[in-house]
């Protein structure tokens, strides 16, 4: 039996604290069934997306395009369904096509990054606006509604998104925790040179990670479109920030090699609660960026600070000084 350390307990404690704070601040509205449903609803999209993007994070990469890819895939799905006159076949084709778009986007990212050895953030920064542009072209800058058929709208109704999130997280957890491929992801993220000497194809693992990221983003896009029963070019915009935040809060190191799926899901829940709390306190969504930014700086900054040798040295010195005093 391993002892639980304060570090391991910190996540549940934070979670409970968040709950308590929100309950105290807004007792009636926060704990209402419909609000909790809303929380889960928004958490599920981040959760689905981060379940895939975690592969990219673990490699020390980044995917800034997931927000606009989420929009593009939502558009793909809705337009296909509309094209097939809201038929169930259309839904099926739409989903398949959308997942294909997600995988293709990931493939393109992975191939460009590995073949030309260019920084991931730059490539995905560029594809971010490409995807946005494509969505604008396809939608003609209009909102496309899609309230039929039930096969589509049910995807976004509780508890389907939550189930999807659980499935996505479970698969991701299984792959990362239980399979050789998962071990390779951690190895490549932790030390690509050593991984290559151990016979692991860094290129293959990298391309795979970006494809998985694209795939879960596509699922996120479908769910988001179904939840809102509409889509537009700006659907999902800014989601890359939520997902990065969820990861960082969940203990994923952006330098790669460190982080778990449960951690990421925890991060997604915290982001969902945070947003819900801000909404309940009537903070307009345009101002959420302030809180988001501060949380990112605090979480990443703390992580970076802990790795800073100067800071480590300072800690060690303080420890020594204390030992002397004692």
């Amino acid at each position: 039996m391993k002892k639980l350390t304060l570090n391991q307990l910190s996540k549940p404690i934070i979670l409970v604290a968040f709950f308590l704070i929100l309950t105290i601040l807004r007792p009636s509205s926060f704990l209402s069934a419909s609000n909790l449903g809303n929380v889960l609803w928004s958490v599920s999209v981040y959760g689905i997306m981060v379940s895939g993007t975690i592969f990219v994070f673990l490699l020390g990469g980044i995917d800034l395009s997931i927000g606009s890819l989420c929009g593009l895939t939502a558009v793909t799905c809705v337009m296909t369904i509309r094209h097939f006159n809201y038929s169930t076949t259309g839904v099926l084709l739409g989903i398949l096509l959308t997942l294909g778009v997600g995988l293709l986007a990931g493939l393109v990212h992975g191939v460009i990054i590995t073949t030309f050895k260019v920084p991931a953030f730059l490539v995905t920064f560029a594809t971010q606006i490409i995807f946005l542009g494509l969505s604008m072209i396809f939608t003609n800058n209009k909102i496309l509604s899609c309230q039929n058929p039930p096969a589509f709208t049910m995807i976004g109704k509780n508890p389907v998104p939550i189930i999807l999130m659980i499935i996505a997280a479970a698969i991701s957890w299984f792959v990362l925790r239980k399979t050789a491929t998962g071990r390779y992801v951690y190895a490549v993220g932790g030390n690509p040179q050593a991984a290559a000497i151990s016979g692991i194809s860094v290129t293959k693992i990298t391309i795979m990670a970006y494809m998985i990221s694209g795939f879960t983003t596509a699922i996120g896009g479908i769910v988001l479109a179904s939840m809102t029963q509409q889509c537009m070019a700006s659907t999902g915009s800014g989601y890359e920030q939520f997902v990065i935040m969820a990861g960082v809060i969940g203990g994923i190191s952006l330098l790669g090699g460190e982080g778990t799926v449960p951690g990421a899901i925890f991060g997604a829940v915290i982001i969902g609660l945070l947003q819900n709390g801000l909404n309940l306190m009537s903070v307009p969504s345009t101002q959420h960026g302030l809180v988001r930014g501060i949380v990112i700086i605090a979480a990443v900054g703390f992580d970076a600070l802990q790795r800073d040798p100067a800071f480590q040295g300072w800690l060690a010195k303080r420890k020594q000084a204390r030992a002397k005093n004692a």
Partner: peptide, 27 residues
């Protein structure tokens, strides 16, 4: 300061401040 003193990766740090500056603008 965020980048050089807190050692945040540049693109994450400035992505965060992008959100912060924009939010303050709205406020």
């Amino acid at each position: 300061i965020i980048v050089a003193k807190l050692h945040l990766p540049e693109f994450i740090g400035t992505l965060a401040t992008m959100g912060i500056f924009r939010a303050i603008t709205y406020i």
